[in-house]
């Protein structure tokens, strides 16, 4: 049972990493790419960590895996703000749809 849930979580995590990378390649400007990377990859990481944590036999090792999530989240939130702020300071205008 645990094996099955873990496999599903790992696959779902992999899918979100795939979607995040797809967004990175497909989206038109730095700001939209940050949306794809920050959100999809963080959800992917959360699923993968949870999938690994439930396989662990010791509670401490499982908690250690879970703790990686908030650490990586705070790093990615900070870095994505830093990139967006720099892009804004350099005067990079967000991409807009023309057909509106």
């Amino acid at each position: 049972m645990i094996e099955l849930v873990s496999t599903i979580l790992l696959c779902v995590g992999g899918f979100f990493y795939f979607a995040g990378t797809l967004g990175l390649l497909r989206f038109p400007d730095v700001y939209s790419r940050l949306h794809a990377l920050a959100k999809a990859d963080n959800l992917g990481l959360g699923c993968i960590l949870l999938g690994l944590a439930i396989q662990e036999e010791s509670l401490a090792a499982a908690l250690k895996l879970v703790l990686v999530w908030p650490l990586a989240l705070s790093a990615s939130a900070t870095v994505s703000y830093a990139i967006a702020r720099r892009a804004d300071a350099l005067g990079i205008k967000p991409w807009r749809r023309e057909d509106r």
């Binding site: 995040g20 797809l22 949306h35 959100k39 999809a40 967000p94």
Partner: peptide
């Protein structure tokens, strides 16, 4: 909201540029 945000942006990424309507 992380789950909702991740799913939302994943769907937009799968549809590509035409699903975007960015603004500030």
């Amino acid at each position: 909201n992380s789950v909702r945000g991740g799913v939302q942006v994943a769907l937009i990424a799968l549809q590509g540029r035409r699903a975007l309507q960015p603004g500030t």
